[in-house]
Nucleic acid binder design. Structure first.
Length: 863
RNA sequence: GCCCGAAUGGCGGAACUGGUAGACGCGCCGGACUCAAAAUCCGGUCACCUAAGACGUGGUGUGGGUUCGAUUCCCUCUUCGGGCACCA
């Protein structure tokens, strides 16, 4: 065995071996339990980043762990290859998005291989290839047939200079990112998918998904946002007369309604603006407002009276109608009743516009003040000043209001959802074409199945001014499938979330060019373990759940939920360094170019730029990103220390579901540990083969080492298999290796116990650092490859111990440690605890009131 | 603004079901090896009290509560992070 640890050579050798043996090519086998481990596929941005390394190392470790547990594993990989960055790169470099994308894929695939992931590349898929996206189109046509896909107008960001639609990301402070022009809003026809038809089921099923993180289920449930309430009608004589409908979850406060507020797009607002230019201007102002919900919610609450009045459905009193910039047309009926006494936003609105505030709910006897808002004003309570509803509690009042108003046609109980239908039309080139043909006489005509796929031209170069498909005559000009007349192809493409809503199914049968899915889906799906960033907790996962439901209705799959178990990993952070330039701009420096020196006692630090030796400011630790110039290139790490060190560091530095802070010293520590492991095996092997272990003739130190080895094995098995805490699994093996290093070798059996400890250490770490352990396993005398080794059985006999240490507390404070026999009864333990000298010091002459005994752990004496 | 998380030594983190706070690693301090440096190895390292031990005292973002016992459960606040529907 070689004395030096040389990662480059052993990693190449191990990877070559797995390739040759086709170790990770998955085959359907009904006789074996499968394990489908899937990491969210990457966008081919150019290079892998540390977030990818973290994601894929977690998945790979689980895949290898389950493989050693006898499961028939599948771990595929693909490319989420449509999207905006390819168009941006095209604008910047004049290269077609297709070429840029495929070049990136080639580079990143090589990076994947250098990291040693056990991926089945035979099933690789790329969403920008027609073999894949034709099935987007095919299923979209099925959705059209079923009424799940439909056409309606929607609002987009319009850059009037570039004459192009902008993504929210491309709108900065209300201006176009390239032109700086004030962005307008435009209403255009678009396709929507009716995810709301599945809202109830998407919500209900969450409660039977115990293997999804609680926080993701809560976030999804809140996103879907089921609200039980009452739809109330305020009748009016405006125009031809009618009813203003509002939705409320607080029908019990109806007698406190002092105004109604409608969205700028509401018909009553438009009616009122008809002969009122000031109002029309205000509506325009609202419509120009922010597109993002976050900005919408933080903007100043503004309103304007329409001058119109509706009638209160109970009292018949006139109620003024206002336009409010905080009322969303997309939720409920686009109108709310204003109850300033019991809703914080309505209170602020009423204060600002001097609208009356009428308290109608009693709040635990505390006085209501019209001066300032108190949080408890919105509590449920008994109705007061409420005419027929005085004295009713919340539920009684809601029920009575709903019943009374239903009787006169002005109310009904109603369930409302926050979830909106999914608009999938994008006015962009680099996406999957929507398979529609526009004919002057037949309208929007679906492309017939036999004409699929509608192939996207791959040689266009967008220049930032509109979708290049609009100028591509070859693509545009078609015959109408219905009447045969000259017609024009739809140039909108699909949201890239469509591509990622079903790729996990396609991995089961990526080679099938006759059908979207086939029988193999039945074997591999659902995904046993899905792994990805927490930032996808809502949108991607919800869309995927929705698509799976539709496919189930089509008979293509037999399950509702595509991901049995979900793991959401945390983000990767790094230091950020910067200087403010004279012009007031911030210049960021990559941490690689900065030297941080600790001051004398190691407690503070100073950062200087290597280039000029002058100080830079530290901006703390933030998510790695291009904009902050604080990314670390995994390739540099792999080249310098090897893939195993990169993998070990990223799995050790933090629990996988939490954020991870980058640390160069931590990487050194991981490298050092692998070298120590290598050295420990080297030293052991150098002394020749160890004798087989004779369990019947062990000394106490040998028994202790064996106990430690099997405790470690037990902990690693549980940490990876159940808890997914790779960091504590690694720490446990480090402890075992420390014990081996200290273990004195005197008798022959000592080397046997050490041999076992080293085997367990190597085997337990192999899912995380597969290359070095591949070599070490052979060096430990095995003729077979570690990748094919089953996980080791825990020797429960080795775990046995005769006695156990127990903590003794007096009044909850630690006062002594005692050692008792494992099977000692409570009386014995109690007596031993009370007999301890230090315990006696604290008990003294006080009467013992109570003794709490936690078997095998602790005694607490209460005096 | 709304929804969801997180906060523990100089730093990353551990303590899994309410039961020994600080495992493991980094950094730092001391030592060995070396002409020297790097690498490696050994020892120490929460704060305070103390000449020095101690199963002395304090201590897990803030303030309160429940409990024999709280990093863990409940309430309040603060700060940071993720998401908010056209970034993926």
């Amino acid at each position: 065995m070689q004395e030096r640890y040389e990662p480059a050579a052993i990693e190449a050798e191990a990877q070559h071996y797995w390739d040759q043996q086709h170790s990770f090519e998955a085959k359907e086998d009904d006789s074996r339990a499968k394990y489908y481990c899937l990491c969210m596929f990457p966008y081919p941005s150019g290079r892998l980043h540390m977030g990818h390394v973290r994601n894929y190392t977690i998945g790979d470790a689980l895949t290898r762990f389950m493989r050693m547990h006898g499961r028939n594993v599948l771990q595929p990989m693909g490319w989420d290859a449509f999207g905006l960055p390819a168009e941006n790169a095209a604008i910047a470099n004049g290269v077609p998005p297709a070429k840029w994308t495929f070049d990136n894929i080639a580079h990143m695939k090589a990076q994947f291989k250098s990291l040693g992931y056990g991926l089945d590349w035979k099933r690789e898929l790329t969403t920008c290839r027609p073999e894949y996206y034709r099935w987007n189109q095919w299923l979209f046509l099925r959705m059209l047939e079923k009424g799940i896909a439909y056409r309606k107008t929607g609002v987009v960001n319009w850059d009037p200079v570039d004459k192009t639609v902008l993504a929210n990301e491309q709108v900065i402070d209300g201006k176009g990112w390239r032109t700086g022009a004030i962005v307008e809003k435009r209403e255009i026809p678009m396709y929507y998918l009716k995810i709301t038809a599945y809202a109830e089921d998407l919500l209900d099923e969450l409660s039977s998904m115990p293997d999804w993180p609680e926080r993701v289920r809560v976030m999804q449930a809140n996103w879907i946002g089921r609200s039980e309430g009452v739809r109330l009608g305020f009748p009016h004589n405006i125009g031809e007369g009618g009813v203003l409908w509002v939705f409320t979850t607080r029908a019990d406060t109806i007698m406190g309604a002092t105004f109604c507020a409608v969205a700028a797009e509401h018909p009553l607002a438009e009616f009122a603006a008809h002969d009122n230019p000031k109002l029309a201007a205000f509506i325009e102002d609202c419509k120009r407002g922010p597109a993002l919900e976050a900005e919408m919610a933080t903007q100043e609450k503004k309103g304007m009276a329409t001058g119109l009045h509706v009638r209160h459905p109970v009292s018949g009193e006139p109620v003024p109608v206002w336009i409010g910039n905080y009322v969303l047309m997309s939720y409920g009926d686009g109108a709310v009743m204003g109850v300033p006494a019991h809703d914080e936003r309505d209170f602020a609105f009423a204060k600002k516009y001097k609208l009356p505030i009428q308290p109608v709910i009693e709040s635990q006897g505390r006085p209501y003040s019209l001066a300032a808002w108190e949080p408890w004003y919105s509590d449920h309570g008994r109705c007061v000043n409420s005419g027929p509803y005085d004295g009713f509690d919340y539920q009684a009042a809601v029920d009575a209001v709903a019943r009374d108003l239903q009787a006169i046609g002005l109310g009904e109980k109603r369930t409302t959802w926050r979830l909106r239908d999914w608009g999938i039309s994008r006015q962009r080139y680099w996406g999957c074409p929507i398979p529609i043909i526009h004919c002057r006489s037949c309208g929007a005509v679906p492309v017939p199945d036999e004409q699929l796929p509608v192939v996207l031209p791959t040689d266009l170069v967008p220049d930032g001014s509109g979708n290049p498909l609009l100028k591509d005559e070859r693509f545009l000009n078609v015959k109408c499938p219905k009447c045969g007349a000259d017609a024009r192809r739809e140039t909108d493409t699909m949201d890239t979330f469509v591509d990622s809503s079903w790729y996990f199914l396609r991995f089961a049968c990526a080679d099938n060019n006759q059908a979207m899915l086939d029988y193999r889906v039945q074997y591999w799906l659902p995904v046993d373990q899905y792994i990805g960033g927490i930032e996808h907790a809502i949108l991607h996962l919800l869309y995927a759940r929705f698509w799976t439901r539709f496919l189930r209705e089509m008979g293509a799959v037999s399950f509702k939920e595509p991901f049995a178990r979900l793991f959401t990993q945390g983000m990767v952070l790094n230091d950020v360094f910067f200087r403010k330039t004279d012009s007031g701009r911030v210049q960021y420096f990559n941490p690689v170019d900065v030297t941080v020196t600790a001051d004398d006692n190691g407690k503070g630090s100073i950062a200087v730029l290597k280039a000029d030796g002058k100080e830079v400011e530290s901006g703390g630790v933030v998510t790695m990103s291009k904009s902050k110039n604080n990314g670390v290139d995994p390739q540099v790490l792999v080249d310098e220390f090897g893939a195993d060190t990169a993998r070990l560091f990223i799995m050790f530095a933090a629990p996988p579901e939490q954020t991870l802070e980058w640390s160069d010293e931590g990487v050194q520590g991981a490298f050092r540990f692998i070298k120590r492991l290598w050295k420990a095996v080297y030293d052991h092997v150098a002394q020749g083969p160890a004798a087989p272990l004779d369990r019947s003739a062990l000394t106490e130190p040998q028994r202790a080492l064996r106990r430690h080895s099997h405790q470690t094995l037990s902990k690693v098995t549980d940490d990876i298999g159940r808890r997914r805490t790779f960091n504590t699994a690694i720490a446990a093996v480090m402890e075992l290796l420390n014990a081996v290093a200290k273990y004195p070798l005197t008798a022959a059996q000592d080397r046997s116990a050490v041999h076992e400890a080293l085997e367990i250490a190597v085997l337990a770490l192999s899912p995380i650092i597969p290359h070095v352990t591949h070599t070490l396993w052979r060096e430990l005398g095995h003729g077979t490859a570690l990748i094919d080794e089953p996980w080791r059985q825990i020797d429960t006999e080795a775990l046995q111990s005769a006695d156990v240490q127990i903590v003794v507390q007096v009044n909850g404070k630690l006062r002594a440690h005692i050692t008792v026999a494992v099977d000692a009864d409570d009386a014995t333990v109690r007596a031993a605890a009370l007999a301890d000298a230090n315990v006696q010091k604290f008990v003294g002459s006080s009467a013992v009131r109570k003794v709490i005994i936690v078997p095998g752990k602790l005694v607490n004496i209460v005096v």
